[in-house]
Write a protein that binds this DNA or RNA. Structure first.
Ligand SMILES: [Mn+2]
Ligand SMILES: [Mn+2]
Ligand SMILES: [Mn+2]
Ligand SMILES: [Mn+2]
Lengths: 145, 145
DNA sequence: CACAATTTGTAGCCTGTGCTACAAGGAAAA
DNA sequence: TTTTCCTTGTAGCACAGGCTACAAATTGTG
């Protein structure tokens, strides 16, 4: 079939998105927690994501290996410059997705949930379209229509 | 932090979405391929997703175990009623996400790519908001594209 | 029919991300 | 200071979903 290469490319991109998803959520969380409390510990991420401390430790190890985080045994988790950059980009995109959902009339609770998954699959082009829509469409405080 | 329970719920939902993602994409693909060619073989899915036939076989086995597909050795893959239902829902949601991206000005190529990942994280409420937007303010002259 | 090509299955490897159980380090309380 | 409690680390398990290599079955061709 000729349409196969197209679907292959799409699914490959989705798989690639998923490989970045954990990194994006973790650097964003570390940044948030550091800002809120001064430092980020394993236990903070455990509570943030609702997974065991073992899972957090292993994921942090991977993100250290990949250059997004740095830490030492029994010490707080810190962002590298690379991690900070990714966190800033991710937060901006997350916020735009959230704002778009609100603009389309989604409730805050559901928008918060859905944006958490959608954000990782929004390309630069799509993000720009979202931003343009938010700019041009009248900022309705409560979308009943 | 007090906001932790909220973030926990969000990330738990995202993880749950991901656990359904493969099932949704596979039943949709099987349905498409059966419609297009009369039957769906392992090799068709291999070409569709761009993964090895081993990966396809193992995922098909899981989906048979979970009641979405049925097959026998060296025979075509078929949908169960449960699988058909999921395929129909998934396709409708996929199409709505795709149409929304187009309506916001995303190119067809990028919309096709992004929708492949976004679709799995769109809740019922958000889907309804997308549909309403497309009905009320989509300047598309329907028909093609 | 016999042989070749395609398809499917199986063995065995990897990584990522979940978990529990237990061990050890660090901080707080007694 | 000693003891307790919280935190972090480690061992070892599970499952999903990637892979290659090789084997077997099916299908197509001469
Ligand atoms: Mn996020
Ligand atoms: Mn997220
Ligand atoms: Mn998809
Ligand atoms: Mn996803």
């Amino acid at each position: 079939m000729k349409n196969s290469p197209k679907s292959v490319a799409r699914h490959q991109r989705t798989r690639k998105d998923h490989s970045m998803e954990t990194a994006e959520d973790y650097v964003e969380a570390v940044d948030d927690i550091v800002t809120a409390t001064g430092q980020c510990r394993v236990v903070d991420l455990t509570r943030h994501f609702g997974v065991s401390h073992v899972t957090v430790t292993r994921i942090v190890s991977r993100l250290v290996r990949e250059g997004f985080l740095q830490t030492e045994p029994y010490r707080p988790i810190e962002l590298t410059n690379k991690g900070r950059t990714l966190a800033a980009e991710s937060r901006k995109r997350h916020q735009t997705v959230y704002d778009l959902l609100l603009a389309l009339g989604v409730s805050e609770r559901i928008a918060g949930i859905d944006a958490e998954g959608i954000e990782h699959h929004v390309s630069q082009e799509t993000l720009r379209c979202f931003e343009r829509f938010l700019k041009t469409s009248a900022p309705r405080t409560d979308g009943s229509t």
